[in-house]
């Protein structure tokens, strides 16, 4: 038996999901972070974040069309993590690393938290 593995398929699907997001096609939730709004697909959010998984698997919350995050969450940090969810690319800037990491802890994105820890360790000579 043979199987053909399309090695680019996962990234091609993600690229298309990101295009759908940028055109606001079938996005089904608005995430409110302080005063900023981010449109996204619930399925992508819950596939990447433990917090969103818990929210959208709750039968009382899964139909919500808007979710407000803790006001302590930095919108810039959230924007970077949302971009990561849809692109696999995490933009780590030293000036934003703490807010990215704290937002990743809040969103329960454990592997991103680990990556932030490693980034902090390697950029801090002490």
């Amino acid at each position: 038996d043979s199987c053909i593995q399309f090695t680019r398929h996962a990234s091609d699907v993600l690229l298309n999901l990101n295009r759908l997001r940028s055109r606001d096609i079938l996005t089904d939730v608005t995430i409110l972070v302080n005063r900023q709004q981010f449109r996204a697909h619930k399925t992508v959010l819950m596939a990447c974040s433990g917090l969103f998984y818990t929210i959208f698997t709750d039968s009382h919350k899964c139909n919500l069309s808007a979710i407000s995050l803790d006001p302590k969450v930095d919108p810039e940090g959230f924007a970077i993590l949302l971009e990561f969810m849809y692109t696999s690319r995490l933009t780590l800037k030293e000036s934003l690393i703490m807010s990215i990491m704290n937002t990743a802890i809040y969103l329960q994105m454990d592997h991103v938290v680990d990556t932030c820890h490693r980034f902090i360790k390697t950029s801090d000579p002490s």
Binding site: I4, T7, R19, R23
Partner: peptide, 21 residues
Amino acid sequence: YEGVNTIKEMGRSIHEIPRQD
């Protein structure tokens, strides 16, 4: 897929949704 002969296809797998119409 153990024991299955897997052939790698490196090209694009699906159509590309345009950035904007």
